[in-house]
């Protein structure tokens, strides 16, 4: 059936283990393009690990072993000839706690551009402006671009980190609990931003906050003990999930 939805990432029978410990078991999900996909599940279910596998951050974990495939633009990101730096440019990551560099607001964004070979000042300034505008941060920062990023509030710092990720023109933005350290007002701003971002980008978010997943995402996957229990349209997951386990988790009825 043609639903008019194009998939951006194909996760195929993907397994992850750290030494003897199996973290993910045969996960298969198609992540739709220019949509927000939320991955939910209890602590330790493997949701952050799955997210980190999507831009190979788990390469850094000793004894990490993967099986199966994650296809991005038709190519397995775990193929030996993949340029991991380029992959991480295409698939950006925003972390739980805002982690701006100890630099100015301007340089936080310019840094990624410079290491990607963009030297021309005018071009860098243009991208800084567009990225900050895309994140709704331009009006708040345009008069203090050369002050330290640490002077921004937590919510502003997180949006700056998103702007930093956008500056290098990724296709996909991975967000690992991006609002867990933010107050409600900043959370809503980041959520609004996510919805805006999906016009251009594919967003994948890991969250503990059920209401956040329900509010912002188009698709939701529920992971439990390393396995994908259910994946589907968010509206359906939150009104009539297929699996009892999903129902119990999202309703908070885990015994």
């Amino acid at each position: 059936m043609n639903t008019g939805i194009t998939d951006k990432i194909f996760i195929k029978e993907f397994c992850l283990s750290y030494g003897e410990k199996q973290i993910l078991e045969s996960i298969s999900i198609n992540i739709p393009q220019t949509m927000i996909t939320a991955i939910i599940g209890p602590s330790g279910c493997g949701k952050s690990s799955l997210l980190r596998c999507m831009n190979r951050l788990n390469d850094l974990v000793p004894k990490a072993k993967v099986e199966g495939q994650i296809l991005f633009n038709g190519k397995n990101i775990y193929a030996p000839d993949v340029d991991v730096v380029e992959l991480r440019r295409k698939i950006g990551m925003v972390f739980q706690k805002p982690n701006p560099f100890p630099k100015t607001i301007y340089d936080n964004i310019a840094y990624g551009l410079r290491i990607n070979g963009i030297k021309e000042k005018k071009r860098i300034s243009e991208i800084v402006e567009v990225s900050l505008k895309d994140c709704g941060l331009w009006n708040e920062t345009k008069d203090r671009l050369h002050t330290s990023a640490f002077e921004l509030s937590g919510g502003q710092q997180q949006r700056l980190c998103i702007a930093r990720a956008l500056a290098v023109t990724p296709d996909i933005i991975l967000m690992d609990e991006p609002c867990s350290a933010l107050d409600p007002a900043s959370t809503f701003k980041v959520e609004e931003l996510m919805v805006k971002l999906k016009e251009k980008y594919t967003v994948i978010i890991v969250t503990h906050n059920m209401q956040q997943a329900a509010r912002v995402s188009d698709y939701t996957g529920f992971l439990y003990m390393g396995k994908l229990v259910e994946f589907g349209n968010t509206d359906i997951i939150f009104t009539r999930p297929r699996e009892k386990l999903t129902e119990n988790y999202i309703s908070g009825h885990f015994g």
Partner: peptide
């Protein structure tokens, strides 16, 4: 309580 699924219904 922000009920969902069966609780919501």
């Amino acid at each position: 309580q922000q009920p969902v699924a069966t609780d919501l219904r």
